[in-house]
Nucleic acid binder design. Sequence first.
DNA 1: GCCGTTTTCGGCCCGACTGTTTTCAGTCG
Length: 517
Amino acid sequence: MTNGDIARTLERIALILELKGGENPFRIRAYERAAVSVRNMDKDVRSVYEQGGTKALQQLPSIGKDLAEKIEEMLKTGKLAYLKKQEKGIPAGLITILDIEGMGPKRTKELWDEFGIQSIDDLEKLAQSDELRTRKGWGKKSAEAILRGIAQHRKMRGRLPLPQAEPLARELVRSLQDCGHVQRIEIAGSVRRGKETIGDIDILATSDKPEEVMAYFCTLPQVESVTARGRTKSTVFLRAGMDADLRIVEEGAFGAALLYFTGSKDHNIRIRRLGIVKKRTLSEYGLFAGTPKKKGEKIAAKTEEEVYKAIGLPYIEPELREDTGEVQAAQRGKLPTLVQERDVIADMQMHSVFSDGKTSMADMARAAKARGLRYIAITDHASPMGMVKGIRNTKKSVQTYLEAIKKARKQVPGIRILAGAEVDILKDGTLYLNDELLRQFDWIVATVHQYFHEPRKETTARMIVAIRNPYVHMIGHPTARMLGKRQGIAYDMDTVLETARKHSVAMELNTSPDRLD
DNA sequence: GCCGTTTTCGGCCCGACTGTTTTCAGTCG
Ligand SMILES: Nc1nc2c(ncn2[C@H]2C[C@H](O)[C@@H](COP(=O)(O)OP(=O)(O)OP(=O)(O)O)O2)c(=O)[nH]1
Ligand SMILES: [Mg+2]
Ligand SMILES: [Mg+2]
Ligand SMILES: [Zn+2]
């Protein structure tokens, strides 16, 4: 079980407890929080457990004694008796109904109890029939909303990788700017936080004519259907197969609203609790004295910095706002400095037309020089896989490649060009190129391109063998994952990182949009 | 179920939109 598997199991427990009803909502929330915590954690839960047992698990945020034991059971057996027990009597399809917009646990349970629906298809038939309307509280519009929700669900593409979602968000912003009544406008939510995958697009704006902008938003050509439309907030379903939310606020509350709408939800809750401690209330409208019911004067709202400052925190970068310890770090003045684009002084992973690249070595060197990079490494593929063009495991092939690099150096003076290669790590951890060939390079990037599903222990050993190879300088795209397509390979990351540190081998932070590895 | 400048019990974020509601529950951000 990976962190993701554990998170999904905890989430499932939360959903089932909600569906059954009568459960303490805060207990349900505890399962949800734990799921988010495990999913966002930079540590591998299995490694934590193997090193420190349930005691160590309990040190993890939102994991206490009970959940530590449940996680232990999951890691040991791959199953969880508690979930099995709770699941009894709950049809599997029932939980999928919760994916329909507007169908929460209460309404789903009601229709299950009253009409015996067990799946989205059952729900659809019910909403199309006259039967539903016989029940108090379920009118014509309710049935329509259900059918709309089901139609959206069937076209929904699920969480999209950031590089696919961000252009959609930018396009929406451009469209809204054309409306003429938009003053400020920002992308918020998970896109602004730079999350790897995006559930929906969130946009915040100010306007002199909010109603008109909302009407404009809901009738954009990108919009397939409208889920909710109010004065300050609307939700639409895009033809692209994803939701978009627009929030419009007063100029004077833009900072507080941006803070709220950027999230994450758990970050919001964390900083709102800091407010409560000081007898203050934080919402998207600002930081106020008093409680929600007895709200006093406004203390801060204009900018995010101002709001953070008023609750005693320095500005926290959106990328850090996941409630993974950033608030505590901020309180202690220990926030990390994030890498900026201007920090990049070299490109150590570049593919030319010699393998799967689209550009010549010389053209890339020129472009790098123009961007002010100090040096680059050409790292064409060296892979045994037939379909990958590139460097072969022969003296002649390597010679041809190195000569091409030499030629590029002559063509583009004024930037250092390292002779590198991205060499496949074979099943046993050895490299595709033999040592005699490897030693002719300046820079060796070792990467996994096959045998993705080997057992964890073997993969850990395989990575260690690769790192110990004296010719290897860097492990490229360390987990080999592809966002939305392929899970990363599983190994004991802590042990591998420790080995890499010991041997001074770099771990690449691969920023290819579909890897973010 | 978790957690602690409210420390081991008693809280747990705050507000918008929808529908059929005569006063608010459910769902969602
Ligand atoms: N205070 C508070 N804020 C919330 C809550 N739910 C959502 N938000 C805020 C923070 C979120 O980042 C923002 C947008 O909500 P989304 O549901 O779109 O979440 P987000 O964009 O973070 O992730 P996503 O990729 O869309 O799943 O709204 C909540 O329950 N409480
Ligand atoms: Mg979102
Ligand atoms: Mg949203
Ligand atoms: Zn690769």
